[in-house]
């Protein structure tokens, strides 16, 4: 298969970026999207040009490193899945494919298709944890968790932290990301003692990082590789309301 690529090239935050055209020729349909970029990069290297910078690591959809906007869609056409799980057989032969980074104000550009998503780490640092010191844990089966709650916690915990939700959202909101972590811990009895402070701190951090508000457009859910449900955003709102109430009027 052959493709024409339009790729965002930008040396760094200070310089201006632009879309540059490249050809990808003789690509087997079983090549993954990132492997196609590897091939293009090797050709660029051989020609003495600078390869395209893009992020990836596990290449099986779990580490959340890859972060491409393909033809205007975060992670490309194959939902649910990360950009590394897109294969060239998902495109038409001869198609022109536009590749851009995740465009979110809170994700500053590093180079070409690579952005800095440390804002998401800072949201977790604000309170996305249970303070359990190593050594102080009780016997595991002394904490019973109904299967239904354990399953819902797992569904929320499946978030891979890629930031596609924010990239797809017209408001650049990170609500789906934040709600997933809040919900994971709120569905479990172990998360209960810190439930109030956790949601207050994480939501405030999220706002301070400059992410936008949720206006119920649900683009986040559509692109999420981990199939996190947008209903968790409603849960986040309830958790936040409950916590604000407790903060104001006491427990």
């Amino acid at each position: 298969m052959n493709f024409r690529l339009r790729v965002w090239r930008q040396e760094n935050r200070e310089t201006e970026g632009r879309l540059v055209e490249y050809e990808a020729r003789d690509i087997s349909p079983d090549t993954s999207f990132l492997e196609m970029l590897d091939i293009v990069n090797d050709e660029l290297t051989e020609r003495g040009e600078l390869p395209i910078a893009f992020d990836s690591d596990c290449r099986e959809g779990i580490c959340g490193t890859c972060s491409l906007t393909i033809n205007g869609e975060a992670h490309g056409p194959r939902h649910p899945g990360a950009a590394c799980q897109v294969y060239m057989r998902d495109f038409r032969d001869g198609e022109t494919i536009t590749i851009e980074p995740f465009r979110v104000g809170s994700f500053p550009l590093v180079r070409d298709l690579v952005v800095d998503r440390s804002a998401l780490d800072r949201i977790v640092q604000a309170g996305g944890f249970i303070s359990a010191r190593a050594g102080s844990a009780p016997e595991a089966n002394s904490i019973l968790v109904p299967k239904h709650n354990a399953d819902r916690a797992m569904e929320a915990a499946a978030c891979i932290g890629c930031g596609a939700c924010a990239a797809a959202c017209p408001n650049a909101s990170a609500m789906l990301f934040t709600s997933a972590k809040i919900s994971h811990l709120a569905f479990l009895p172990q998360g209960d003692p810190e439930r109030t402070t956790r949601v207050l701190r994480m939501v405030r951090r999220m706002d301070a990082e400059g992410f936008g508000n949720c206006t119920n457009i649900y683009e986040c859910e559509a692109v999420c590789p981990a199939e996190i449900s947008a209903s968790l955003i409603a849960k986040l709102n309830r958790e936040y309301a409950r916590a604000s109430w407790r903060e104001r009027f006491g427990e």
Partner: peptide, 14 residues
């Protein structure tokens, strides 16, 4: 296992 459960790791349950 005790430590991970305390931290909120959502292990499979019956």
């Amino acid at each position: 296992i005790d430590q991970c459960v305390a931290q909120g790791v959502p292990f499979a349950r019956e």
